[in-house]
Design a protein around this nucleic acid. Sequence first.
DNA 1: TATATTACTGACCGATCAGTCATTATCTTT
DNA 2: AAAGATAATGACTGATCGGTCAGTAATATA
Lengths: 234, 234
Amino acid sequence: MNLPLSQAPPEAPCEVLATRRRRKDARPSELTAAALALFVDKGFAATRLDDVAARAGVSKGTLYLYFSSKEALFKAVIEEGMVAVLAAAEEHLANHQGSAADLLRELLLGWWQQIGSTAMAGLTKLIVSESRNFPEMAQYYHDGVITRGRALLRRALERGVGSGEFRPLNVEAAVDVIMAPLLMLAISRFSLCLCGQQVAPEAYLETHLDLLIRGLQRTGAISERPSNEGMPCN
Amino acid sequence: MNLPLSQAPPEAPCEVLATRRRRKDARPSELTAAALALFVDKGFAATRLDDVAARAGVSKGTLYLYFSSKEALFKAVIEEGMVAVLAAAEEHLANHQGSAADLLRELLLGWWQQIGSTAMAGLTKLIVSESRNFPEMAQYYHDGVITRGRALLRRALERGVGSGEFRPLNVEAAVDVIMAPLLMLAISRFSLCLCGQQVAPEAYLETHLDLLIRGLQRTGAISERPSNEGMPCN
DNA sequence: TATATTACTGACCGATCAGTCATTATCTTT
DNA sequence: AAAGATAATGACTGATCGGTCAGTAATATA
């Protein structure tokens, strides 16, 4: 095969050849962090456990002290990522006031800050790539993350439609349409120059929100928010 | 490892145990078709060449008569897909009249018919998944498909903005924002229940177009097209 | 039917890599 | 300091799979 191996030198031992240490508590999270980075970069199948262990500053044998198999490691990576994701979701659920348009804006920009701009975004590509080979994993991610995110968006849209701020629309479809640019943004960050990387994420999100809120609002209802502020046309 | 192997029985020999045949001309396309199906389903690394050959009704040795390596087979799959994609792009380029909104509608629905609804859509997931491991492949796909598609959309948007039908906007960002739901639709078709699969593709696209065109048009310009026609709200 | 050509085969090889385990090094306890 | 406990190691194994090639059989030609 001879893959082009785009890897940087595998995590130079900055800890100046530290002698081996016994750190039972720290190992699991260090290993899942290393695994996340490599899985996201090279994909699940192409990632060698030797490399994961090396990146975590440990031998492969040690990895097997904490995870019973490569798949178990994968599950742990997903599960650990979930925690932050769900916490962010809770945060968004808590405080929602003002117009539906502002709520929508807050939700999408919050997603970017909490997830999209972090390493967590890599999970999106990982799941997309591997879901067919790990159906129960995909199901878990779907139920725990996607469904939850959809529920947030759906609520925001329904509130806007109910109050008359937004016009009637197919809410279920709109939820997916609204999420898609976010997911693609996350994916493109971990997938060499496919789409969207020429445009800065902020401008991308701002354009999405701008188009979206105008598209949602009742005809005639002029946005009271100063639109196009600081956004160059072309 | 012991992957769950979601495979159906690997292409039961419908050709009733046909004795071996010499069909030099037909082999390459049969092999790339088999490879596309398996690559899209299981990913590149997890696909075995024995399975590709078996699915094409041939032995692995025969595969190597036509393709020098697994990666060469991958390239051929992409390249073969390209032909149809570029043909469709040319078609869209040729005939464009009427309003910019109609052109946009025609472009997006055309994408669905020519690409999104076909097996070609699987290439999107394939590229997303494997681009890091095959940079030159990603580059080729980017230059040959993404850039071309973006150019089409950009032209449509610029026409609308130029004629005053659309309001001024960040065209580059808008192109990506508009493409994202299409790409996610393609991806979700080959990635177990991640997003968008609960909603029928037609309703999804219609909602996208509806939101989009309203979002693009100048405030006050009422769409002359009967919107919401046959689309249930919720 | 005999001969030549070549598409096709499948057993085989070598490299890779997930997973194992006997051994070693570190830390704790007394 | 000695002994016990266990975290960590890395050489090893067995299975998998990309890639090879000597041989086989289908077709063309005479």
